[in-house]
Amino acid sequence: MWDELQFASALIVSGLSIGLMYSLIALGFVLVYKATDAINFAQGEFVMLAGFVAALMLAPKMPVLVAIGAAVAVMVAFSFALERIVLRPLIGRPIIAVIMATIGLGAMLRGLPPITVGGETRAVSLNIGDMPIGFGSISLPPVQILGVIVTLAFFGLFTWFFLRSRMGIAMRAVADNQQVAMAMGINVERYFALAWAMAGTVSALGGVIWGSMLGVDVHLALVGLKVFPVVILGGLDSVAGAVIGGLIVGVVESLAAGYIDPYVGGGTKDFAPYVLMIITLMFKPYGIFGTHRVERV
């Protein structure tokens, strides 16, 4: 009985921490969707690109903070350029155009590393050790703890930004109605760029953390696939939803791996989140915190 409880709590704690790291990536997706209505199918590739930047910087023994700074800088610059060159001309076009553009971009980004720096897996070593930290049977690797801290910090920052700061209110106004926002003196395009830059920043940190857990190669982009169950569950345009959705997906995945895998031989971890996503779409299509269309009656 005691063992059972310990096993379950260990699964839950590890699921929560992994889940928060999904949230970090999902935050990037949500920010862009919330502010610009664009669905970024290349979110996973953003993470991968940031992982490569960090890995390449760390290879010649650069300080860790410099490598992280470089990853953030590259991703912000990349997001700005993407918004300016690819997405701005698509403003006002059908949403499918933006979706296709990001899918194409994702494919291009996945093709980039093998032809430039080679396809082998690279390490991102953050010099924070590998000895699990924790008490009793519940312990977590340091990088996961770092991931938890970074995610919670960004969650707090974004919550403050959207609810309290004038820029955040302006960004929500842009999300609500672009034309009216423009007439309020808000430079809508600048806010689009800002949203993309924020998404670039969280992707960069996601890339560093996930890269150091899984190693950096083209497959790192696959973590982006987990974004979809997370955001569908939490609500496509909710910062809090990204965090809660991530936690749920992480725990479900971890419990599935712990309890169902022994009977079926493994692999449930990868599809359990999608089952959850489909159930969510059936019963709560806007997700837990997603914006409903406001309707007066």
Binding site: I169, D176, A181, M184, T291
Partner: peptide
């Protein structure tokens, strides 16, 4: 055309 998802006061701030 108020910003429906913002509160009254946030509309004014915007």
């Amino acid at each position: 055309r108020v910003f429906e998802h913002l509160t009254t006061e946030e509309n004014l701030v915007a």
